[in-house]
Write a protein that binds this DNA or RNA. Structure first.
Lengths: 112, 112
DNA sequence: TATGGTACATACCAATTAGTTAGTTTTGTT
DNA sequence: AACAAAACTAACTAATTGGTATGTACCATA
């Protein structure tokens, strides 16, 4: 439990993983997905996730550079929690902050 | 997702919630379950979980005092993730740190 | 009289984490 | 000639989080 919690804790890691759930993503795509993250943080967190073996990094030798991130096998096995966790959050907002609920619903439309 | 992640992140929150998964627990029981936690941190984290509505607090007017913590309804709905997350951690250790695997298995026997 | 158990609170300090700002590289575009 | 794009790195600062140490109330027991 300690190990699992440590690997996914931090302000951005679950977002990054969540962003990867439907396949590989470029650095700049992740930057857009993780609204508000700084480049430093994105790089840091990607490095840690890579070091821990949850994601892998594929570099295309081009200019301008292109780097793609995706799950490793064991990283992908964390997918079980993304949708339930997202839905739990939705339920929570519905119950505890009903005034905000419609905002989230609107946001859902624009972002997918 | 932001909301859900914020509520369960922190060095101890998931342990506390994990500790409550089989029913209400006293303060001192949680202290034993969360090996290494200080009283300050335990109290802090319990207060935050309570403020967020994930757990509830029941005080028995006795001396010495007795306080029991348990899930609220929405808190309990996070249970879906505890066992899978624990097992994911186990798998991770099995794959990436096989030398440590037997230690965990031994620990499992003693603690339940 | 001293000690212990329970569930805290408070003050202060250390460590960890996150944010800001600026720069790098190479090529292509205006 | 200036600037933009992508994926970074480095130096520095701010904010958050966690730890240590000590104290409290009340009663019971040694």
């Amino acid at each position: 439990m300690t190990l699992a919690v440590n690997m996914i804790s931090g302000k951005w890691k679950l977002f990054i993983l969540y962003g990867l759930r439907d396949g590989e993503k470029r650095y700049s795509e992740l930057r857009r997905i993780c609204e508000g993250i700084t480049e430093k943080m994105l790089t840091n967190q990607l490095r840690e996730l890579e070091k821990d073996g949850l994601i892998k990094r594929k570099v295309y030798p081009q200019v301008p550079p292109k780097v793609e991130y995706s799950f490793t096998e064991i990283g992908e096995r964390l997918s079980f929690m993304f949708d339930p966790l997202y839905n739990w959050g939705l339920d929570y907002i519905k119950e505890k902050r009903p005034e905000q609920y419609h905002l989230v619903k609107q946001y859902e439309k624009t972002s997918h």
